[in-house]
């Protein structure tokens, strides 16, 4: 276990974040991602309105919030899959405004999707190979000359096999991705993302639809990403999981960042409780039971 090492990356990340003020938009000692004034509205609805947020390098940061808080939209904006109305955001100091999604990915910020995007009619191995970057055989003119890319293809395959065995999926390599279970698809999507050697991994609800047996191994894989020096930002609803693996938690509600801090402190935060459970708990529960549930879904 990594806990036996002199100082694990987990300890390093938590030490670095120890003195960060627990306020929304708190500056981090070594931010990999900085977003400023990112606003996205759909017609009259402002889905995302983030004044300032920073993500610490080498840490696991959770992005939580009630349904409709704008977490996934914020993810889409950061990764170039959607364009904000206004705002700037920097990844490793590079301005990402107007940068196409595939270029964001090439810079080292790789995302997964809430609804898993396994490429069903391709085998697990082909899914993995697709993730590899800088393939000569992916250029049209060199693609028809097998000798130009066959050596690289073997390297890519070896790397894919190594990753698949780490994820306990090697025996599935020749199966069609469409025949995998929901949890296995999540694993495949994560393994495929790792084929690109990302600096930062953005996971959109990695636990959604995963059976409990697989949850523990998926959690361990996410912790391993940090130990390998990657930064992880993930969206999740499962609070136990958030408490278990994250070093830092950012809470969004109605498009805004309302709280930040280590998981235990954030979950005691008044603003967070209000956002999740509604603002009526000064009244007797019996008299406001109906509005209580309605607000919880807001």
């Amino acid at each position: 276990m990594p806990d036996n090492a002199p100082e694990t990356r987990k300890e390093a990340a938590q030490r670095a974040l120890a003195d960060v003020p627990r306020v929304p938009g708190a500056p981090k000692p070594d931010p990999i991602l900085i977003a400023d004034g990112v606003v996205r509205s759909f017609g009259g609805l402002t889905a995302v309105d983030v004044a300032h947020v920073e993500v610490q390098r080498g840490a696991i940061t959770a992005l939580i919030g009630p349904n409709g808080a704008g977490k996934t939209t914020f993810f889409n904006l950061l990764t170039g899959f959607d364009t904000p109305n206004t705002g700037t955001w920097l990844f490793n100091g590079h301005d990402l405004a107007g940068v196409a999604a595939f270029r964001v990915a090439r810079m080292g910020m790789i995302r997964t999707f809430q609804l898993t995007k396994a490429l069903s009619k391709m085998t697990v191995m082909e899914n993995m190979r697709l993730g590899a970057t800088g393939q000569k055989g992916e250029r049209l003119l060199s693609s028809i000359f097998g000798f130009l890319w066959s050596a690289q293809e073997r390297q890519v395959t070896a790397k894919a096999e190594e990753l698949l065995s780490r994820f306990n999926m090697l025996q599935k390599k020749d199966d069609f991705a469409g025949s995998l279970s929901g949890g296995q698809r999540k694993l495949l999507e994560m393994a495929r993302a790792l084929m690109t050697d990302p600096e930062m991994v953005m996971l959109d609800e990695p636990m959604a639809g995963v059976n409990p047996a697989l949850t523990q191994s998926l959690l361990q894989h996410i912790k391993d990403l940090r130990e390998q020096g990657m930064t992880v930002l993930f969206v999740e609803h499962d609070m136990d999981m958030v408490r278990d693996i994250s070093d830092w938690v950012i809470v969004m509600a109605q498009g805004k960042v309302i709280a930040e801090g280590p998981p235990d402190e954030v979950m005691r935060d008044e603003a967070v409780i209000v956002a999740y459970l509604g603002g009526h708990h000064d009244k007797a529960l019996t008299s406001s039971g109906v509005s209580f549930t309605e607000e919880a879904h807001g």
Binding site: T79, F81, A101, F102, R103, A105, R106, I110, R111, T112, F113, K117, A118, L119, S120, K121, M122, E126, L130, G131, T133, E138, E189, R192, A193, M195, T196
Partner: peptide
């Protein structure tokens, strides 16, 4: 083939 299956997935891998 990846694009045929899901072009956003392929885009997310930097293609």
């Amino acid at each position: 083939k990846g694009i045929r299956e899901d072009e956003d997935a392929v885009r997310s891998l930097g293609k």
